[in-house]
Design a protein around this nucleic acid. Structure first.
Lengths: 302, 302
DNA sequence: TAAAAATACTCCATAGGTATTTTAT
DNA sequence: ATAAAATACCTATGGAGTATTTTTA
């Protein structure tokens, strides 16, 4: 005698409803002896009679009645679970835990969530905003299913898919609007304002300046693009921001926006996930949604 | 592929906790391939991957996480059910639905319930007060597990167990206290007051009067012993009541209580249940409890 | 006597074990 | 190269079927 089995519960539930071994067996699509044996084993297993047998009609014992109620509850839960699973056939389901870096989140996350809710009504979305390294860590330790970051990230266990490029534009104080576009090398001398350590965008901007900036002591740091923009407006220096941040961040600030000379600086935004994730097909679908969000309204601007 | 099995849920739950096929298998006391196969079949059954396999570590998919939560809930319910059953090994459990006739209930039911609650703390007591015929009907149709009635009831499917006899005593107006004890035959002429049709006690009293009373038009009926006692006190007639009702019913009434001449009238109170009830042993225990209640404080009175 | 459940026995499906291969780090 | 899961194959358990007996109303 091992453990309670689903079969026993199903058979007993049918018996409790029909009060008749033959009809219960019919409902379960087995023969009467098969059901009888299972019920008997169930009673032996739990050590208490559940059924009063008699020739014409059977009854449940008082204990059997209580047992039947609980059994029914359990079977209902199991049925719900099966439905929950089947309604999800091959689809993404349950939770979708995804990360997004802070230099993208403010501009795309809300649209993305809106779109995702429309495409996957049952999905439990769990967004998380953090710097790239944190996201990669979370991804590899399975606290996230996917993340939106700047590529490449070059982790052997991580798959990366490029979605779109975004240009960096130069922000200068409004007073400098008519000055010529500086070369990348000159930016540090103009007091290039950067995000604080740890933001990938900082590194991307730095590398654009050929790394010279690291030897420059005039640059300052801010913890968000909004802060940087305000500092530029105050005449403290210049900065680079992703083009998609322009509308939101420069709306009321006294700054001038300029494209750098070719080759224009840019970064690649992409989605990453564990290579071992078996739902690659669904993740590609989601990546397409994000690509659509990231590129809409952009045509003609860059 | 048939239906979700308990085994699959147990294996998956272990896997979700250990995140390791080998250790999950160990916990389930099976080999790793056995568990792997079951998990794979579970995934096929529900049509969605639950687990991300990789060489060093495995993870659950977002859907797998949700599935694991529900699985755990179900297994907890099942475990509770098993505990509920085992805590009850061969004991009476769940509901105990019992009936009791109105001419016994007021005097013994409260003590009986108190005692039952002490002896069977987990038992869900469902008492029901009704006339004998109703109780027998309910018993045979399995709406009751047992009943306290006056014997015999002589139903072939019903087992009956005598518990104790109770004497009927004569109640006359207080003014008649010194008159001699009448013979049974004379009671109708003294205006014998009876319970209304359907009470077994009415029939028992009538049969004591040798059935002559049925041809007598002077008797009156009341719907409760209390009513009869009040009518006797008002001088309307005489009545017979069970001895155990004396204390409660005659406390403040102006009536005289007399024992009839030998052979004193009496009835047998007993417990009845379906012969098919498999818990006879437990029912006998309960019957003993009722016998104790019914005979306590009675010694020396009859 | 008849309806219904239990029992006896046989068979087959399937769960599980062992040995091995595949995979990913 | 190694740890871990998947696969292949075989065995044994146990669940289900058929035929029959027992029970009881």
């Amino acid at each position: 005698m091992t453990n309670l089995s689903m079969k026993q519960l199903r058979y007993f539930d049918a018996l409790a409803r029909h009060r008749h071994f033959g009809r219960a067996a019919e409902e379960c699509a087995v023969t009467q002896p098969a059901l009888s044996v299972q019920i008997k084993e169930l009673e032996e297993l739990i050590g208490t009679p559940l059924v009063e047998r008699s020739a014409r009609q059977i009854h449940l014992t008082g204990f059997g009645l209580s047992f039947a109620e609980r059994t029914r509850d359990i079977l209902r839960s199991v049925h719900d679970l099966e439905e929950f699973a089947r309604s999800n056939n091959g689809q993404l389901g349950g939770q979708f835990r995804f990360g997004i870096i802070p230099t993208v989140a403010p501009y795309l996350l809300s649209s993305f969530i809106t779109e995702m809710m429309a495409c996957y009504p049952g999905l439990d979305l769990r967004p998380r905003e953090a710097k790239t390294q944190i996201l990669i860590q979370d991804l590899m330790e399975s606290r996230l299913d996917a993340a939106i970051v700047a590529l490449p990230i070059s982790e052997p266990t991580i798959r990366e898919l490029a979605l779109f490029d975004e240009e960096f534009v130069l922000l200068r104080p409004a007073s400098e609007v008519d000055k010529p576009i500086p070369s990348p090398d000159l930016l540090p001398e103009m007091r290039l304002l950067l995000l604080e350590e740890g933001h990938c965008f900082r590194d991307q901007a730095l590398s654009y300046c050929s790394g010279k900036a690291s030897s420059t002591r005039t640059l300052m740091e801010g913890s968000s693009l909004t802060t940087l923009v305000q500092m530029v407006a105050a005449g403290i220096g210049v900065t680079l921001i992703p083009e998609m941040a322009v509308d939101l961040e420069t709306g009321s600030a006294k700054v001038s926006v300029s494209h750098m000379a070719d080759p224009r600086p840019s970064r690649t935004i992409g989605m990453i996930w564990r290579k071992s994730n078996p739902l690659e097909e669904q993740l590609l679908e989601i990546a397409e949604i994000f690509r659509k969000i990231g590129t809409s309204g952009k045509t003609g601007m860059s």
